[in-house]
Nucleic acid binder design. Structure first.
Length: 315
DNA sequence: CCTCTATGGCGAA
DNA sequence: TCGCCCTAGAGGC
């Protein structure tokens, strides 16, 4: 699930779970043993997201930099009340544990300990991130408006803007009826401004609900829920997560101390409970929800692009 | 049980 | 352009 919203939510979860504490940091199967040893014994200052990168600042100028790639997962779960730390299952690159929380990293493409200078260098390679208050959309516009590459390619270029991935790309282009194949330099500034503003509105909902929401009715509902403070919790209990994922150890009872609390009345585990529904993403061959023509697909910038050839002809 | 696909991105060729 | 990283859900048998 990793577009920018996933990493920003993960940063919030890690922050809630570990900031101000000194977690035990390990690499259970060894591949990150050196880095884990460097971080073990240091306190967590802050976790933050920038584009699709996660940074966790530890005391003493050490930063953990994680990039989930396509298949990485970083599960943050509450383990308060358990008799012992849950066992490792699968390949765990990095494990962080304090009295109340457990975080297991799997399948990431980047997991390294970096210096402040290296953090700065990584950030310097990224374009503005719609999820960050300090983002400057003019930086993205400067690149896009001068480029002969298609807008579909540019939206995926993390140096142009950071955090947008294939789902937001397809969906935001549809929402604005923009042809994915229009070169950046032929996009009107008004159109870009509207796309950026839309991302600034949509992506925080993705963070709050841990799910990409782009359909008007879902966006509206999610906006109201956020205003009312009714959003899924940042962390769930480990047992619930393990069950939800369909994995976990053979002997749960050996690990569990407290009974499962009866908090499954509203708090969804791992997601928002909202139906997965998009305008065009993964709908190849199905009818466009507006004009009825078949949603098309083609590989662009190494990913499957989806668009409506009739609705997205202009702009 | 199996195979396929995926919301990334890098490096080799 | 392709292989690779190596998780996990979906769907077939």
């Amino acid at each position: 699930m990793p577009e920018g919203h996933t990493l920003h939510r993960l940063a919030q979860s890690l922050d809630a779970a570990f900031a101000g504490t000194t977690p035990a940091v390990s690499s259970p199967q060894g591949p990150f043993a050196e880095g884990a040893a460097l971080l073990d014994g240091r306190s967590v200052v802050e976790a933050s997201g920038y584009g699709k990168h996660l940074f966790v600042e530890f005391s003493g100028e050490a930063w953990l930099n994680v990039h989930l790639g396509l298949i990485g997962k970083f599960a943050v779960d509450r383990i308060s009340g358990y008799a012992s730390v849950p066992p490792v299952w699968g390949q765990v690159r990095l494990r962080m544990v304090n009295d109340d929380y457990l975080a297991d990293l799997r399948g990431a493409t980047i997991c390294q300990v970096v210096t402040p200078d290296e953090v700065t260098a990584t950030l310097a390679r990224l374009g503005p991130d719609p999820l960050r208050a300090d983002a400057d959309p003019a930086r993205a516009w400067a690149k896009i408006s001068r480029s002969g590459r298609t807008i579909a390619e540019l939206l995926m270029d993390q140096a142009a803007l950071a955090g947008v991935g294939n789902v937001y790309r397809c969906e935001v282009l549809y929402r604005h009826r923009v042809s994915p194949f229009r070169p950046g330099r032929e996009i009107r500034q008004r159109t870009w401004d509207a796309i950026w503003a839309d991302l600034v509105r949509l992506m925080p909902l993705g963070v709050a609900f841990n799910q990409i929401l782009t359909m008007d009715d879902q966006v509206e509902a999610a906006t109201e829920l956020v205003a009312a403070g009714r959003v899924p919790e940042l962390t769930s209990t480990w047992t619930d997560s393990a069950r939800w994922i369909g994995r976990g150890p053979a002997s749960e009872d050996a690990v569990r101390d407290a009974d499962l609390e009866d908090d499954d009345d509203g708090a969804e585990v791992g997601g928002s409970g909202m139906e997965r529904r998009y305008w065009v993403y993964r709908r190849a061959g199905e009818a466009c929800r507006v004009c009825g023509s078949r949603v098309r697909t083609q590989v662009v910038a190494g990913r499957n692009l989806f668009w409506c050839g009739r609705c997205q002809r202009r702009r």
